[in-house]
Nucleic acid binder design. Structure first.
Lengths: 207, 207
DNA sequence: CTTTTATGAATGAAGG
DNA sequence: CCTTCATTCATAAAAG
């Protein structure tokens, strides 16, 4: 049952305190393998997204809108076990939100107009608390820092071997498109969901 | 395929719904499960990112040999043939550089402008690898931490109603007059330990 | 080697 | 837009 899993997770809470168990001493993956992993992650992200959408749509059918609109959720900082997670004072975009934002940013429409902001905010609100100000700030910062980074990269000119760092500094913009891969190359969703103790313990170790 | 996994979830979901006595046959995941999956995906994303960074750093390992061995700093002359794309490890100021930085900082000019940054960088570059960003960050951090230290040290003549907030997790140092309209809702990826042992080992086995 | 600390770097938000 | 500040994250260095 769920309770049993929770207990097991909590039991393993302490042994996750290790930090940085990966050393940079050896080459870990080939480029192909990395690309593969990234695609698999995209798949997981897409599946998750779809599930969330599905779930929300169905949930909305049941209880009407008043319950789930606004900040009227039950305290999201409380886990099921009643454990409280340290609150943050500033918005932290969820991975999915970041993914969407990056995609929009890369689409070139560098002009986040007022109306556009509203739309984006609405979309992102499906994945977590967010405000238009957050979106606005994000685009402002994203653009400014992207620009500044290029300013630093350019002065290193006249070299013929600059070929790596051309593209966007981060590979986060892996697009969530379905790619057919062999499932046995990645841990199954069940494994992710119920056999990976790290997450829960990390969750609890936050406070 | 993915559908198989989803069916697993659905089955489990239905069971749980029956437990709760709520009749709905299409809810796919509980909120907890959704959140959990989302976090786990973010873990994947983080691991992938780290692997990419790691791989880049190692691939660029052409002319750097003693970076991780401690006191060995890059000799500027050494980078003549290669360049410095290696910058995946964080800059460690040489003692001489630190000395110079501290002196400039103590001179009171709190905010080194862009031009000033360039000058300082040029000067420090004679004593070791450095970039303008390093200098900029150093001053930012130096100032912020100096300021913060005073906040902790000064409150001896505190007002009668002001309490010293050392490290209260719930009482951040947010300004009382500022109201945050958008609180963070869910724990983010950064809050989690992104070192799931199973995944790491799996990745190593790939190599 | 493991844990803790110090600090370089990243980023959300505010001000101009 | 750009700069600046405050907070947080990650990791080199130090301590155990």
């Amino acid at each position: 049952k769920e309770e049993m899993k929770m207990m097991e997770w909590e039991k393993q809470e302490q042994q996750q305190q290790q930090q940085n168990g990966v050393m940079m001493y050896v080459k870990v993956m080939t480029d192909e393998q990395m690309e593969l992993l990234r695609k698999q992650i995209s798949i997981y992200a897409t599946i998750c997204e779809e599930l969330v959408e599905m779930h929300k749509a169905i949930t909305a059918q049941r209880d009407l809108a008043g319950m789930r609109l606004g900040n009227l959720y039950f305290d999201p900082l409380m886990t099921s076990s009643g454990h409280k997670i340290t609150a943050r004072q500033r918005w932290t975009p969820a991975p999915i939100q970041l993914q969407i934002l990056e995609r929009i940013f890369d689409q070139g429409n560098g002009t986040p107009s007022k109306q556009k902001i509203k739309e984006i905010t609405s979309e992102l609100a499906q994945h977590g608390q967010i405000s238009e100000t957050n979106v606005y700030n994000w685009f402002q910062n994203r653009r400014a820092r992207s620009k500044r980074k290029q300013q630093v990269a350019v002065p290193n000119n006249a070299e013929s071997e600059i070929e790596i760092e051309v593209e966007s500094p981060d590979e986060k913009k892996a697009k969530p498109e379905i790619i057919h891969l062999h499932e046995n190359q990645a841990p199954s969703a069940e494994d992710m969901c119920y056999q990976s103790p790290g997450i829960i313990s990390a969750l609890h170790s936050v406070d």
